[in-house]
Structures are given as C-alpha cells and as structure tokens.
Design a protein around this nucleic acid. Structure first.
Length: 550
RNA sequence: GCGCCCGUAGCUCAACCUGGAUAGAGCGUUGGCCUGCGGAGCCAAAGGCUACAGGUUCAAAUCCUGUCGGGCGCGCCA
C-alpha cells in the first residue's frame, strides 16, 4: 500500500514535470534502499528518465524534486549519488497502513481484480494406479495456495483434478489387481511385466474380494473392466482422502475416459484436420505442431489406431476452453518438462492464445532425514507416500515446507527440521509470532482493556524504529499479493510471512506493548491488532493454522 | 550429437525474466541478552573476485558469446 502510494506520487510528479509525453505508461520501480538510513523507500525513476531525455540522472532528480515534495507524502526527500531518489515518509502516511489493515480486516491486501472472472487451476492429476507421492504433495500445495489467492482476489476459481483412467497403464493396473486377486484364491497368477507390484495392489484385491467374492476369477474382458473401474475408483477415493487430510479440496474430478466416451478426442482431431494441421505418415496421424513452435511434429493416432495421451490432452484443454474459463493454469511435475512445448503448440493451433494457458513446472522433491537423503525407488515399491509424510510432520509443516523454495528450485524436504519445536524451524517461527501476539491481546483483556477502544488511540506515539519497520512491512502486504498474483510463486508468501514474523519478534524483544502509559499501550495494541491480522491473512492463504496457543 | 536448465557465503537458497546504491536471507559458527506481555525468542560478529574468459553499457550476479563443471529432455510411454 505504501509502495502504491509512492508510485502514484512519483507518477504525478513526472506528469507535472512535463518532459515526457508518455508519462502515463512510463514504468519505474519503488524499492527498499540498501540501508534504512538512506530512507524508507526509493525510486530509480530519475535514472530511467535520464535515458529518455538525454540528461544526467542527477539533473533529472533535481528537477523532479520540487514536484515530489509537493505531493506531501514525505517529510524528507533526498537525492543520492547516482540519481536515486530516497523518501523518508511522513508519520501520517505510515499511520494510514494500520488504519487500513484494521478497518479492512481480512479484505486487506485483496482488491477485487478478478471481477468474477473464471479461472481454472488443474493440479496433482496423479495417475490412479498408485498412492500419492511426496512430489504430488508439492504440486498440491502450489495449486491450492494459488487457488486461495485467486479466489481472495475476486476470481471464481475451480480446482480441478484430471484422472488418467484410460490407456495401457490402466490395463496393466487392472491386470495387476487381478493377479493379486487370483492369488488370494490360491491361484498362481503372476503380476505382468509392466504391472504394479506395490502392496497397495493387494489391499485393492482384498477389498474387491470382500465386495464381489469369487465372481471375477476367470479373466474375461468383462471382469477385467470391473477391476479397472473399481480399481480406479478406490484409488481415486484414496487420493481424495489423502488430499483432504492435507487441506486440499477439489471442485471437479475430471475423467479422461469421459472424453473418449463423448468422442471428444476424435472431434478435436477433426478440428485440427479442418485447419490443415493433420498429416499421415508411417500409418499414424500426426499433428504439425512444428508450425506452432514445437521442435517436432507429434503423433495423435498411433498406427494401431489408438489415440496418444497427447491427443486426449488436447481434447481435454479444448473442453476446458469450451467450459468458458477465462484463464487456465496447469501445474505439472518435472517429468513433464518436455511436454510443455507440444501442449502450447496445441493451444496456439486451436487458436486460444498463449495467454490463456499457463503451465507451471515445479522441480523435484527429495526427502532428508537426520541429514541423510532418503532414496526412493518407485520400481522397488519403496517410497514415502504423501500420507506418510503428513503422518510424520503434520499438515501445517508439510504445506509450509513445500513452499520454502521457488518452483524452479529442487526441494530438499527436511523431515527432521519440520517436526522440531525450535526456532530454526520456519513454520514454528511464524506460528509462534502469531501465538505471542495473541498472548499479548489476551493479557490486555485480562487487565481490563477493551480491545475495541484501542482503535481510537493516537498512532503518532508509534515513533520507535522497530514500530516503523513493522508498519512498513504491513504496508507491503498488498504489494506481495500483487507480486504473487503475477509471478505465480507461492514461495513469496512464505518468505513474506517469515520476514514479518522476524520484524515482529524483533519489536517484541525491544519494547513492551502493555505498560503504565495508557495511550502508548493503546497505540501499540492497535499495531498488534494489525500485525496479527496480516499474519492471519498470510497463513490463511497458505492453508496453515494460526494457533492461539502452542 | 541436438535442445533446454543450472553454477551466488561452510550448507540450503533469494535477487536474474524487466541491468542500477554497499549482492540479501535462513541454517551453521563465534560472542552477548531472561526479576515484567510465552526464551518455541532477540542482538552482534565473522563469512563473497556471483564457476571461468571475453563482449555490450554511464552501470552486469542480471543481457550476449565462448570455456569448464552438474542436471534434464530428445518414444507411435504417461
């Protein structure tokens, strides 16, 4: 909010300075100076304007200065070496932040920029042939937090999960369950070469035996279909349960098979054929994706007449478009990296415009315990599931830790640290800040202070450096929201919450809130109310609890 | 071989897209801080030729080229 105010002021000053006609579209930065001695905020506007008008930055800054001063937001404005302009904000501007937070409450920082526009976020979308892994967990949190954010910003958000319940891997899955099922009846049926060997397949077989007895013993087409459908259903149910424990709920579970049933894959093929983008080669049907930026053309129909996964995925995205989503975000794991090019080519070919779809790829997750990497091999059936991770570290720590790195960065998930009740554990650090503030408010009420009354306190009394730092940080929350909205990096929220917690703890150690000075106490309580508000807004975006006691 | 990504403090990472001030955090290390709102906390210090070499620029961790080192992709798999 402070940065917004400054941006507006600088823009206004540039306008009245009058040397560039396109002042309205001219863009510059508001930054935090390297040292707080230099100022509260700074702008590089003069450096950039210097280039435009062919003057030195210093000279431009000097010319701009009187106009900036007229804006009346700073008690002091300084021109630094090199042409940076530094602002020392007026106290009354800082006070505005606290008032805004306390009056807007959980709306603070969330303007309605979505205006009800429909956005779909598709994530996790794990194959229904095995339990969710820790990698799926990363995608789950990223998608869920982005969905939270977009929905707070006034978008109508739909969280969608795509179920790959079609194709050869599902057939292998069904046969694997059948093998386990037959084994339960003492038959020696081996699991197929490309089958699934994990113990969970046995559990599925047991479950199906309970439901249907021995009716499925001969491997007919019809019986295999039962294993397929029931197996997928049970698997999807278990995914659903795991995700709910993890705080993630989907609005729509979309089956790939529904596209095939409704001939949507065939229809999509026809759409591309009408555009002249389909050709035949080696007995297969190809999509000329190279015309749209892909590095090679792609097969849509194999020479045996079956559709590729890609063909179905094109139909899926066509379906998303026809459902009327203004914007779609797909969140994929690192193994799909090579898939982005062809998907985007498909989107362009279908004429949806590349702004419409955004594909986010996150990097691998590795688990670390006691400083040692936990090796996981899917083939051996030895891997830690998302369920086990949540069992071990809890929902809050799991969600928070998943967001400790940018999407681009591989994540080493430190399970030992995640459960540690110690200051070096970042999630406890942030939650503890919340608890501490809550404890202060509790203490105030115990002493008979009406918290409703502190809103009329005189905020001019908040003159300490730590108080100012805290207020500035609170004022940056809307900026953070804006940055996350455009960068699609939920990591930013985690980092901000850590910074805010740090500044609060810092303040807490230096100053008491509740003192004999009634006016000062009230002013500081008002600051605490604002801080706890913003902290809660952060944690609610992250889907992490804000405990009152720990 | 072709293509893409990465190389920043002892460790794990930000900042790179959109070039700007003294390259930031956390952990770890060292040294301090509890008679009052929760010490699950705070403060301070040390620690960097941003892999290397060129180039562009008034200005490069950031943009360009090359070298070295690491990872990934290059199926009519999903």
């Amino acid at each position: 909010m402070l940065i917004g105010i400054l941006k507006k002021a600088v823009k206004e000053a540039i306008k009245r300075w009058g040397k560039i006609p396109h002042w309205e579209v001219f863009s510059f930065d508001i930054t935090v100076p390297p040292s707080e001695k230099l100022g509260d905020y700074a702008t590089n506007a003069a450096l950039l304007l210097a280039k435009e008008v062919g003057e030195t930055p210093q000279k431009v800054a000097e010319e701009l200065l009187p106009y900036l001063e007229q804006e009346g937001i700073a008690e002091r404005i300084e021109i630094a070496r090199g042409g940076f302009i530094n602002f020392f904000l007026k106290q009354e501007i800082l006070e505005k932040v606290i008032r805004a937070v306390n009056s807007q409450g959980d709306e603070y920082g969330f303007p309605n920029i979505g205006g009800g526009k429909r956005v779909q976020i598709e994530f996790v979308s794990a194959n229904p042939t095995g339990p969710l892994s820790v990698a799926h967990g990363r995608g789950a949190v990223i998608g869920d937090v982005l969905a939270n954010l977009f929905s707070r910003l006034g978008y109508e958000v739909s969280r969608e999960y795509y179920i790959n319940d079609y194709g050869s891997q599902i057939d292998a899955f069904a046969k694997s369950i059948y093998a386990r099922y037959a084994q339960l009846w003492g038959k020696d049926v081996p699991i197929p070469e490309d089958g699934y060997k994990g113990d969970y397949v046995k559990d599925l077989a047991v479950r199906i035996r309970e439901e249907l007895g021995d009716k499925l013993l001969d491997l007919s087409e019809e019986n295999l279909r039962v294993f397929k459908e029931r197996g997928v259903e049970l698997m999807v149910d278990s995914h659903k349960r795991t995700l709910e424990r993890f705080g993630v709920k989907f609005d729509n579970w979309f089956k790939e098979s529904s596209l095939h049933k409704a001939s949507q894959v065939q229809k999509t093929l026809e759409v591309l054929r009408d555009k002249g983008l389909i050709f035949e080669m080696d007995g297969a049907l190809w999509f000329r994706s190279t015309l749209f930026g892909d590095d090679k053309d792609r097969v849509l129909v194999r020479s045996d007449g079956t559709f590729t996964y890609f063909a179905a995925d094109l139909a899926y995205h066509r379906d998303k478009f026809e459902r009327g989503f203004a914007r779609v975000i797909d969140i994929w794991g690192p193994d799909h990296y090579g898939y982005v090019g062809r998907m985007m080519a498909g989107i362009r070919a279908l004429g949806y415009g590349e702004e419409w779809l955004r594909i986010l790829i996150f990097q691998v997750v590795r688990l670390v315990r006691e400083g040692e990497l936990i090796m996981m091999s899917k083939r051996e059936g030895e891997f830690v599931t998302l369920d086990e991770l949540v069992d071990e570290v809890g929902k809050d720590a799991a969600r928070f830790f998943y967001l400790l790195r940018t999407l681009d960065s591989p994540l080493d998930f430190d399970m030992t640290l995640a459960v540690k009740q110690a200051p070096e554990n970042p999630v406890y650090y942030v939650q503890y800040a919340h608890t501490r503030i809550h404890s202060i408010l509790r203490e105030a009420e115990k002493r008979g202070i009406e918290l409703e009354n502190v809103f009329s306190a005189n905020l001019e009394l908040l003159k300490e450096e730590k108080e100012k730092a805290l207020i500035k940080k609170l004022g940056e929350f809307p900026t953070l929201v804006g940055i996350t909205h455009s960068s699609l990096e939920p990591y930013n929220i985690v980092r901000y919450s850590l910074e805010l917690a740090k500044i609060f703890h810092n303040f807490y150690e230096m100053h008491r809130v509740i003192t004999d000075d009634e006016e000062l106490t009230n002013a500081r309580l008002q600051l605490m109310m604002a801080t706890i508000r913003v902290l809660r807004n952060c944690l609610s975006l992250l889907g992490v609890e804000a405990p009152e006691k720990m």
